[in-house]
Protein backbone atom coordinates (compact mmCIF):
# COMPACT_ATOMS: atom_id res chain seq x y z
CA UNK A 1 0.00 0.00 0.00
CA UNK A 2 1.27 3.43 -0.87
CA UNK A 3 0.27 6.52 1.06
CA UNK A 4 0.56 9.75 -0.92
CA UNK A 5 2.39 12.64 0.70
CA UNK A 6 1.21 16.16 0.00
CA UNK A 7 3.74 16.78 -2.76
CA UNK A 8 2.78 13.62 -4.55
CA UNK A 9 -0.86 14.52 -4.18
CA UNK A 10 -0.29 17.96 -5.66
CA UNK A 11 1.58 16.40 -8.57
CA UNK A 12 -1.32 14.03 -9.30
CA UNK A 13 -3.77 16.92 -9.03
CA UNK A 14 -1.77 18.71 -11.67
CA UNK A 15 -1.81 15.65 -13.92
CA UNK A 16 -5.57 15.27 -13.45
CA UNK A 17 -6.03 18.91 -14.37
CA UNK A 18 -3.96 18.46 -17.52
CA UNK A 19 -6.16 15.51 -18.41
CA UNK A 20 -9.29 17.60 -17.92
CA UNK A 21 -7.83 20.41 -20.02
CA UNK A 22 -6.92 17.99 -22.78
CA UNK A 23 -10.37 16.40 -22.70
CA UNK A 24 -11.84 19.83 -23.37
CA UNK A 25 -9.15 20.46 -26.00
CA UNK A 26 -10.14 17.31 -27.90
CA UNK A 27 -13.80 18.17 -27.73
CA UNK A 28 -12.94 21.61 -29.10
CA UNK A 29 -11.08 19.97 -31.98
CA UNK A 30 -13.85 17.47 -32.69
CA UNK A 31 -16.75 19.86 -31.96
CA UNK A 32 -18.39 17.29 -29.66
CA UNK A 33 -17.52 14.36 -27.43
CA UNK A 34 -18.22 12.33 -24.29
CA UNK A 35 -17.42 14.80 -21.57
CA UNK A 36 -19.09 13.88 -18.28
CA UNK A 37 -17.75 10.38 -17.81
CA UNK A 38 -14.24 11.35 -18.88
CA UNK A 39 -14.12 14.07 -16.26
CA UNK A 40 -15.62 12.01 -13.45
CA UNK A 41 -12.91 9.41 -14.06
CA UNK A 42 -10.00 11.81 -14.62
CA UNK A 43 -8.62 11.56 -11.08
CA UNK A 44 -8.77 7.76 -11.05
CA UNK A 45 -7.09 7.56 -14.45
CA UNK A 46 -4.38 10.05 -13.43
CA UNK A 47 -3.63 8.07 -10.27
CA UNK A 48 -3.63 4.74 -12.10
CA UNK A 49 -1.10 5.77 -14.73
CA UNK A 50 1.09 8.06 -12.66
CA UNK A 51 1.18 6.17 -9.38
CA UNK A 52 -0.53 2.80 -9.29
CA UNK A 53 0.30 0.86 -12.46
CA UNK A 54 3.56 -0.43 -13.88
CA UNK A 55 3.62 0.57 -17.53
CA UNK A 56 6.40 1.67 -19.82
CA UNK A 57 5.68 4.19 -22.59
CA UNK A 58 9.00 3.24 -24.23
CA UNK A 59 7.93 -0.39 -24.33
CA UNK A 60 4.13 -0.50 -24.47
CA UNK A 61 4.04 -4.27 -25.01
CA UNK A 62 6.30 -5.01 -22.02
CA UNK A 63 5.29 -8.49 -20.88
CA UNK A 64 5.30 -7.68 -17.18
CA UNK A 65 3.23 -4.51 -17.44
CA UNK A 66 -0.01 -4.00 -15.63
CA UNK A 67 -3.07 -3.84 -17.86
CA UNK A 68 -5.74 -1.17 -17.98
CA UNK A 69 -9.10 -2.06 -19.47
CA UNK A 70 -11.42 0.86 -20.09
CA UNK A 71 -14.67 -1.06 -20.07
CA UNK A 72 -16.64 2.17 -20.38
CA UNK A 73 -14.93 2.96 -23.67
CA UNK A 74 -16.76 6.27 -24.11
CA UNK A 75 -14.52 7.70 -21.38
CA UNK A 76 -11.58 7.36 -23.78
CA UNK A 77 -10.83 11.07 -24.01
CA UNK A 78 -9.41 10.79 -20.49
CA UNK A 79 -7.41 7.73 -21.57
CA UNK A 80 -6.02 9.49 -24.65
CA UNK A 81 -5.05 12.45 -22.48
CA UNK A 82 -3.23 10.37 -19.88
CA UNK A 83 -1.39 8.29 -22.49
CA UNK A 84 -0.21 11.48 -24.20
CA UNK A 85 0.84 12.90 -20.84
CA UNK A 86 2.87 9.77 -20.14
CA UNK A 87 4.55 9.98 -23.51
CA UNK A 88 3.01 6.97 -25.23
CA UNK A 89 2.46 9.27 -28.20
CA UNK A 90 2.85 12.87 -29.14
CA UNK A 91 0.38 15.26 -27.56
CA UNK A 92 -0.27 16.95 -30.91
CA UNK A 93 -2.29 13.86 -31.92
CA UNK A 94 -4.95 15.09 -29.50
CA UNK A 95 -5.82 17.92 -31.87
CA UNK A 96 -6.87 15.43 -34.53
CA UNK A 97 -9.88 14.25 -32.55
CA UNK A 98 -12.92 14.08 -34.82
CA UNK A 99 -11.00 14.36 -38.09
CA UNK A 100 -11.12 11.78 -40.85
CA UNK A 101 -8.86 8.84 -40.04
CA UNK A 102 -7.78 10.27 -36.68
CA UNK A 103 -5.99 7.86 -34.37
CA UNK A 104 -8.50 8.93 -31.74
CA UNK A 105 -11.85 7.35 -32.53
CA UNK A 106 -14.73 8.09 -30.19
CA UNK A 107 -14.08 4.70 -28.63
CA UNK A 108 -10.53 3.36 -28.39
CA UNK A 109 -8.84 1.14 -30.95
CA UNK A 110 -5.75 -0.71 -29.75
CA UNK A 111 -4.31 -0.85 -33.24
CA UNK A 112 -4.37 2.90 -33.70
CA UNK A 113 -2.25 3.98 -30.74
CA UNK A 114 0.30 2.44 -28.41
CA UNK A 115 -0.77 1.90 -24.82
CA UNK A 116 -4.37 0.93 -25.52
CA UNK A 117 -5.05 -2.61 -24.38
CA UNK A 118 -8.56 -3.30 -25.68
CA UNK A 119 -11.18 -2.16 -28.16
CA UNK A 120 -14.14 -1.13 -26.08
CA UNK A 121 -17.15 1.05 -26.67
CA UNK A 122 -19.95 -1.47 -26.47
CA UNK A 123 -20.58 -1.51 -22.74
CA UNK A 124 -20.35 -4.74 -20.80
CA UNK A 125 -17.32 -6.29 -22.51
CA UNK A 126 -14.35 -5.06 -20.52
CA UNK A 127 -14.65 -7.11 -17.38
CA UNK A 128 -14.66 -10.46 -19.20
CA UNK A 129 -11.63 -9.47 -21.24
CA UNK A 130 -9.87 -8.25 -18.11
CA UNK A 131 -10.71 -11.50 -16.35
CA UNK A 132 -9.14 -13.45 -19.21
CA UNK A 133 -6.03 -11.30 -18.95
CA UNK A 134 -5.88 -11.89 -15.22
CA UNK A 135 -6.09 -15.67 -15.66
CA UNK A 136 -3.46 -15.59 -18.40
CA UNK A 137 -1.05 -13.55 -16.29
CA UNK A 138 -1.46 -15.95 -13.39
CA UNK A 139 -0.88 -18.95 -15.67
CA UNK A 140 2.41 -17.36 -16.71
CA UNK A 141 3.41 -16.74 -13.11
CA UNK A 142 3.51 -12.97 -13.62
CA UNK A 143 2.49 -10.69 -10.78
CA UNK A 144 1.06 -8.07 -13.13
CA UNK A 145 -2.31 -6.67 -12.19
CA UNK A 146 -5.34 -5.87 -14.29
CA UNK A 147 -7.25 -2.65 -13.64
CA UNK A 148 -10.70 -2.03 -15.03
CA UNK A 149 -12.77 1.12 -15.15
CA UNK A 150 -16.52 0.74 -15.46
CA UNK A 151 -19.45 3.14 -15.48
CA UNK A 152 -22.26 2.76 -12.98
CA UNK A 153 -24.91 2.77 -15.67
CA UNK A 154 -22.87 0.15 -17.48
CA UNK A 155 -23.48 -2.26 -14.64
CA UNK A 156 -26.97 -2.94 -15.98
CA UNK A 157 -25.36 -5.06 -18.72
CA UNK A 158 -25.86 -8.67 -17.67
CA UNK A 159 -22.58 -9.73 -19.24
CA UNK A 160 -20.75 -7.87 -16.45
CA UNK A 161 -22.27 -10.17 -13.90
CA UNK A 162 -21.19 -13.23 -15.84
CA UNK A 163 -17.68 -11.86 -15.65
CA UNK A 164 -18.04 -10.90 -12.00
CA UNK A 165 -19.04 -14.46 -11.12
CA UNK A 166 -16.24 -16.03 -13.16
CA UNK A 167 -13.62 -13.67 -11.72
CA UNK A 168 -14.49 -14.69 -8.21
CA UNK A 169 -14.76 -18.36 -9.23
CA UNK A 170 -11.20 -18.15 -10.54
CA UNK A 171 -10.08 -16.20 -7.47
CA UNK A 172 -8.61 -13.41 -9.52
CA UNK A 173 -6.90 -11.44 -6.79
CA UNK A 174 -4.81 -9.70 -9.46
CA UNK A 175 -7.90 -7.87 -10.69
CA UNK A 176 -9.18 -4.49 -9.49
CA UNK A 177 -12.31 -2.79 -10.77
CA UNK A 178 -13.10 0.87 -10.28
CA UNK A 179 -16.79 1.66 -10.62
CA UNK A 180 -17.13 5.31 -11.51
CA UNK A 181 -20.31 5.92 -9.57
CA UNK A 182 -21.25 9.35 -10.83
CA UNK A 183 -24.92 8.34 -10.42
CA UNK A 184 -25.79 9.46 -13.94
CA UNK A 185 -26.16 7.78 -17.30
CA UNK A 186 -27.61 9.00 -20.60
CA UNK A 187 -31.25 9.11 -19.57
CA UNK A 188 -30.97 10.28 -16.01
CA UNK A 189 -30.13 9.11 -12.52
CA UNK A 190 -28.83 5.57 -12.56
CA UNK A 191 -31.12 4.54 -9.73
CA UNK A 192 -34.12 5.75 -11.72
CA UNK A 193 -33.14 4.44 -15.12
CA UNK A 194 -32.36 0.94 -13.85
CA UNK A 195 -31.58 0.54 -10.23
CA UNK A 196 -28.51 -1.54 -9.47
CA UNK A 197 -28.16 -0.44 -5.87
CA UNK A 198 -27.07 -1.56 -3.40
CA UNK A 199 -23.89 -1.90 -5.44
CA UNK A 200 -21.75 -2.74 -2.46
CA UNK A 201 -23.87 -5.73 -1.54
CA UNK A 202 -24.23 -6.91 -5.11
CA UNK A 203 -20.49 -7.07 -5.69
CA UNK A 204 -20.00 -8.64 -2.29
CA UNK A 205 -22.62 -11.28 -3.07
CA UNK A 206 -20.72 -12.07 -6.29
CA UNK A 207 -17.67 -12.91 -4.21
CA UNK A 208 -15.71 -9.68 -4.49
CA UNK A 209 -13.99 -7.72 -1.78
CA UNK A 210 -15.48 -4.24 -1.92
CA UNK A 211 -14.38 -0.81 -0.77
CA UNK A 212 -16.05 2.52 -1.21
CA UNK A 213 -14.13 5.76 -1.62
CA UNK A 214 -14.37 9.34 -2.80
CA UNK A 215 -13.27 9.03 -6.41
CA UNK A 216 -11.86 12.54 -6.51
CA UNK A 217 -9.67 12.11 -3.41
CA UNK A 218 -6.31 11.14 -4.85
CA UNK A 219 -5.01 9.95 -1.49
CA UNK A 220 -7.89 7.52 -1.15
CA UNK A 221 -7.57 6.37 -4.76
CA UNK A 222 -3.87 5.60 -4.45
CA UNK A 223 -4.05 4.11 -0.96
CA UNK A 224 -6.72 1.66 -2.03
CA UNK A 225 -5.54 1.18 -5.58
CA UNK A 226 -2.11 0.05 -4.39
CA UNK A 227 -3.51 -2.22 -1.71
CA UNK A 228 -4.74 -5.15 -3.78
CA UNK A 229 -5.75 -7.77 -3.25
CA UNK A 230 -8.00 -6.41 -0.54
CA UNK A 231 -8.40 -10.04 0.42
CA UNK A 232 -6.34 -12.99 -0.79
CA UNK A 233 -7.96 -15.15 -3.45
CA UNK A 234 -10.68 -12.60 -4.17
CA UNK A 235 -11.06 -9.97 -6.88
CA UNK A 236 -11.26 -6.39 -5.60
CA UNK A 237 -13.65 -3.62 -6.50
CA UNK A 238 -13.63 0.03 -5.53
CA UNK A 239 -16.90 1.87 -5.72
CA UNK A 240 -15.68 5.37 -6.38
CA UNK A 241 -18.22 8.06 -5.67
CA UNK A 242 -17.71 10.78 -8.23
CA UNK A 243 -19.33 13.80 -9.78
CA UNK A 244 -20.11 13.64 -13.47
CA UNK A 245 -18.33 16.38 -15.46
CA UNK A 246 -16.18 17.12 -12.40
CA UNK A 247 -14.24 20.37 -12.79
CA UNK A 248 -16.67 22.28 -15.00
CA UNK A 249 -18.99 24.14 -12.65
CA UNK A 250 -21.75 24.63 -15.20
CA UNK A 251 -21.81 20.93 -16.11
CA UNK A 252 -21.16 19.13 -12.84
CA UNK A 253 -23.76 16.52 -11.94
CA UNK A 254 -25.92 17.48 -14.91
CA UNK A 255 -27.27 14.77 -17.16
CA UNK A 256 -27.08 16.71 -20.41
CA UNK A 257 -23.28 16.89 -20.35
CA UNK A 258 -22.81 13.18 -20.94
CA UNK A 259 -22.09 14.00 -24.56
CA UNK A 260 -21.19 17.62 -25.08
CA UNK A 261 -21.79 19.67 -28.18
CA UNK A 262 -20.34 22.81 -26.73
CA UNK A 263 -21.18 26.39 -27.62
CA UNK A 264 -18.33 28.93 -27.77
CA UNK A 265 -19.62 30.47 -24.52
CA UNK A 266 -19.41 27.11 -22.79
CA UNK A 267 -15.87 26.62 -24.00
CA UNK A 268 -15.01 29.96 -22.44
CA UNK A 269 -16.61 28.95 -19.16
CA UNK A 270 -14.74 25.65 -19.26
CA UNK A 271 -11.42 27.40 -19.82
CA UNK A 272 -12.16 29.81 -17.00
CA UNK A 273 -12.92 27.01 -14.57
CA UNK A 274 -9.88 24.95 -15.47
CA UNK A 275 -7.51 27.92 -15.50
CA UNK A 276 -8.81 29.03 -12.16
CA UNK A 277 -8.14 25.55 -10.76
CA UNK A 278 -4.72 25.67 -12.38
CA UNK A 279 -3.84 28.90 -10.59
CA UNK A 280 -4.76 27.30 -7.29
CA UNK A 281 -2.55 24.25 -7.81
CA UNK A 282 0.28 26.02 -9.56
CA UNK A 283 0.03 25.26 -13.26
Amino acid sequence: MHKLNDDEELYLEQIALKIRKNVVRMIKAGKAGHLGGALSAADIIAALYFKIMKVNPQNPGWRKRDRFVLSAGHKCLALYAVLAEMGFFNESILDTYGSLGSKLPGHPDMYKLPGIETNTGALGHGLSIAGGMAIGLKMDGLDSKVYVLMGDGELAEGSNWEAAAASSHYKLDNLLVFVDRNTLQISGRTTEVMNYEPLYKRWEAFGWCVREINGHDLKQIVENGTDIPFENRKPSVIIANTVKSKGLSFAEDRVNYHYWKATPEEFQLADQDLNELGRRIGI
Binding site: R67, E117, T118, H125, L127, S128, I129, A130, G131, G132, M133, A134, I135, G136, L137, M139, D140, G158, S159, E162, A163, A165, A166, H169, Y170
Partner: peptide
Protein backbone atom coordinates in the same frame (compact mmCIF):
# COMPACT_ATOMS: atom_id res chain seq x y z
CA UNK B 1 -4.77 -26.82 -15.66
CA UNK B 2 -5.26 -25.83 -19.29
CA UNK B 3 -8.95 -26.70 -19.33
CA UNK B 4 -11.07 -23.83 -18.02
CA UNK B 5 -14.73 -24.31 -17.23
CA UNK B 6 -16.99 -21.23 -17.36
CA UNK B 7 -20.42 -22.70 -16.87
CA UNK B 8 -23.37 -21.52 -18.91
CA UNK B 9 -21.81 -18.17 -19.67
CA UNK B 10 -21.41 -17.88 -23.42
CA UNK B 11 -20.97 -14.12 -23.59
CA UNK B 12 -18.48 -14.12 -20.77
CA UNK B 13 -16.46 -17.02 -22.12
CA UNK B 14 -15.75 -15.22 -25.39
CA UNK B 15 -14.51 -12.16 -23.52
CA UNK B 16 -12.32 -14.28 -21.26
CA UNK B 17 -10.92 -16.03 -24.31
CA UNK B 18 -10.03 -12.66 -25.81
CA UNK B 19 -8.26 -11.56 -22.63
CA UNK B 20 -6.39 -14.86 -22.42
CA UNK B 21 -5.27 -14.46 -26.01
CA UNK B 22 -3.79 -11.04 -25.21
CA UNK B 23 -1.39 -12.86 -22.88
CA UNK B 24 -0.25 -15.24 -25.62
CA UNK B 25 -2.56 -18.18 -24.99
CA UNK B 26 -4.33 -19.94 -27.86
CA UNK B 27 -7.84 -20.49 -26.52
Amino acid sequence: SRHLEFGIMEQGVIGFASGLATTGKIP
